[in-house]
Amino acid sequence: MRAVLLGPPGAGKGTQAVRLSERWSIPAISTGDIFRANVKGATELGRRAQEFMNAGALVPDEITNAMVRDRLAQDDTGEGFLLDGYPRNPDQAIELDSMLADMGIELDAAIEITADMDEVTARLLKRAEIEGRADDTEPVIRKRLEVYATSTAPLTAFYEGRGVLVQVDGLGAVDEVTDRLVAAVENR
């Protein structure tokens, strides 16, 4: 299984990525983990990314794409992978297609976890309270969801047009959502 996991902040992508990774015996690859590994390892890409992060700027696609390319070339991805947090926009999706073509493989599925925005906002506010994230206020969360809607949501149309999109409701008990995700992907 070679898949990407899409959905708004708070939809449960991280939780489901771990569960699907175990289910399909493939690595769950989060861009956050890739960034941390490159920064901690003081790789050239990590140093370049750190400069942008220190300045409070987004890391350019060129650096993010290179990090993902390096990660996908590792041995543990031979039987598949689940990308969480990448691609974030159609340009990155096109670059991912190019990476996979260079490896002689294709994406099997783009799995979108859907969720009501009010419910997601409530989830994120609760998480902020539990984890002590004072900066995760309702206006900040709503802004993040707005950014998602304008920059990342167009991936839905991109992957739908390619015939690999699978959409699953992310609301409900964690086990129920996992079961829906597995069934939706395996039945497509």
Rank of each mutant, 00 (worst) to 15 (best):
I94T: 12
G41C: 03
E62N: 09
N89S: 12
E44L: 00
A57R: 14
V68R: 07
R71L: 05
L100Q: 10
P27H: 12
L72N: 07
R144T: 05
M1K: 07
A3Q: 08
E22N: 13
K13I: 04
R88W: 02
A93C: 13
E106L: 07
T121F: 02
G32R: 02
R19N: 08
P27W: 10
T137I: 11
P154L: 05
S98N: 10
M53F: 06
E138H: 12
L20I: 14
A93R: 10
E62R: 12
E160P: 03
P9Y: 12
I26P: 11
R36Q: 08
I113G: 00
A93F: 06
L83D: 03
Q50A: 10
V177C: 02
A115T: 13
G7T: 04
L6P: 00
D169Q: 06
A128I: 06
E138V: 07
E146W: 04
I29K: 09
V147C: 00
A11R: 00
R142P: 01
G32C: 03
L165H: 06
D169A: 05
N38Y: 02
A11M: 01
A110K: 11
D136M: 08
I34Y: 00
T150K: 13
I105M: 14
M99D: 10
R47N: 13
E112R: 15
L82V: 14
V177K: 05
R48M: 08
E186W: 14
D97Y: 01
V4F: 00
D175V: 11
V185E: 11
I26K: 07
E106S: 13
A37T: 08
T31L: 10
A183T: 14
T64I: 06
L83M: 14
A101K: 15
T64H: 01
L181C: 13
G41N: 13
A93K: 12
R69F: 01
P87H: 02
K126P: 02
A115S: 11
T31M: 11
D135S: 14
L20K: 04
D179F: 05
L83Y: 10
A57C: 02
R36Y: 00
A109Q: 12
E22K: 14
V68P: 12
L181S: 13
A173Q: 12
I29V: 14
V166K: 01
G163E: 01
R142E: 04
G32A: 02
Q50L: 13
R69T: 07
L165W: 11
R2Q: 06
P90K: 05
S30I: 11
A57N: 09
K143I: 01
G78D: 13
R71G: 05
L145D: 12
L96E: 07
I130E: 14
K126M: 08
T77L: 10
V120H: 00
L165F: 11
L45F: 07
A55N: 11
G46L: 06
A157L: 09
E160G: 15
R123D: 02
P87R: 00
E62M: 03
R123F: 06
V120I: 15
P8K: 09
L145W: 08
R142M: 06
A3H: 01
V18N: 00
D118M: 13
L145Y: 06
T77W: 04
R142H: 02
T64Y: 00
D108W: 10
D179I: 03
P154A: 08
I111Q: 04
D33A: 13
E176R: 08
E79S: 15
V164W: 00
I34T: 10
R69S: 14
D75F: 05
G46F: 04
Q50D: 10
D84W: 07
D76L: 07
